[in-house]
Design a protein around this nucleic acid. Structure first.
Lengths: 228, 228
DNA sequence: GATGTAATTAACGCTAAGTTAACACAATTT
DNA sequence: AAATTGTGTTAACTTAGCGTTAATTACATC
């Protein structure tokens, strides 16, 4: 069984460190991308959807802490592994106290072999988590997260990302009414503001594909997935 | 619209910001109080027991960090939501290092809609903790808050929101007589004013669905839920 | 029977949701 | 790079039905 190639985004403002890390990580079979600050990191991450983001804490433009928090707010990075690179002198608790949602803190100076083994450990943990929830089976519909496909009455169909996420969310707890706020926070992220009608439109598109019965409106509250 | 009116204490030393925030929060149905420094904030908070405290970090007299720590040490503010307003230029680690126990950090410049959506998210999390039971079971009726359904004699039925909230309130303490004022405050919120007859109508609609025996009128006082 | 309070109805206004089309932007193809 | 297609969001309008009002009737209590 061929191992999957993992994508790593390394973010540091010192070119030397970037090169050093890239070299060592690539040697281990990782696919490496780099960025020089938090802002750049976000842009690149959005495009390439890395499995791991290695973030230096101190950086110009946008520091690692903020970059991490921003990413964690975005649904697309919910399962991305984020690890901080911290200088020895920096107080670890400073970062930890922030509840940034980072998965690990790796302190400089970095020893390549240590780094790689830590990352592999993280990946193992992450894969174990992922495999559990990557497939949903409720009633006459199956949702395959890995392939981004839904199987409705036995026929496979591709749905756009937002619709997919929406359906996945609703179907993850059949019967439960998801409030509009809840949906917005889960799918769009807490700081992304979209108009009220946006949810409706996505619901509509889903109903067009899956029929009117699967998703029910609870007026004044939100929507729920009804298992048939 | 409003389930409950939440009290917010906004603390900042700049009157402009106070006004700006007050205006926007009040527009969203929050009940807003203001203070100009940490000391004043503490005094006001003790009296009014706000649900949320929005604290600027930099302030004369007593800064936000100290105010937050002081509040967190007092049992009466154990469950109060405390959020910091931080300028982007301020060093996060300054705040983080203190382990102040704040629930969120909102960075300036503040966009009203972002602020409101974050606060709502915080409130949801907090409410989820507070309300222990999303499921009520009294006699021949069960109320499922998560699914927004009531099960009456074994049959599920959907009821409109206001009726649902009303029934839930009454059924949460069977036998207790809820005064009209009490009901208005709980279901409609502190400063939403509706006529007295509105309650009657909702009671009527519930009785139509659940029979005449479940909800009893106590003339001159209010209503109570009678367990059968 | 007078007075006040609650129940009952129907009708209406308003808000939340549905609908549709058009737009902006990304991703893809040529 | 240009064109095309796909996706997500907004805007404007419509619809439905919830929540409210108001007007009337019934019921207490004095």
């Amino acid at each position: 069984m061929a191992e999957k190639t993992f994508k790593i985004l390394v973010v540091d403002d010192e070119p030397d460190i970037l090169e050093f890390l890239s070299y060592n990580l690539e040697k281990e079979g990782f696919s490496v991308e780099t960025a020089e600050n938090g802002k750049q990191a976000l842009e690149k991450a959005k495009k390439s959807q890395p499995d791991i983001v290695l973030l230096d804490v101190m950086m110009p433009e946008m520091d690692g802490i903020e970059a991490c928090r921003t990413m964690r707010e975005m649904p697309q990075f919910e399962h991305t592994i984020i690890a901080f690179l911290t200088a020895r002198t920096e107080d670890y608790s400073q970062i930890a106290g922030f509840e940034t949602g980072a998965d690990d803190y790796i302190s400089k100076p970095i020893k390549p072999r240590v780094l790689v083994s830590r990352l592999k450990a993280l990946l193992r943990r992450y894969e174990a988590k992922e495999s559990k929830s990557s497939f949903l089976d409720v009633g006459n519909i199956q949702i395959d997260r890995e392939r981004y496909l839904i199987i409705f009455n036995g026929t496979e169909m591709a749905v756009p990302r937002k619709e997919f996420e929406l359906l996945y969310l609703l179907a993850s707890k059949p019967g439960k009414v998801f409030k509009r706020d809840e949906i917005l926070n889960e799918i769009w992220g807490r700081d992304i503001i979209v108009g009220d009608r946006t949810i409706d439109v996505h619901i509509r598109k889903l109903r067009e594909k899956l029929g009117e019965d699967l998703i029910k409106t609870v007026k004044g509250i939100g929507y729920k997935f009804e298992e048939i």
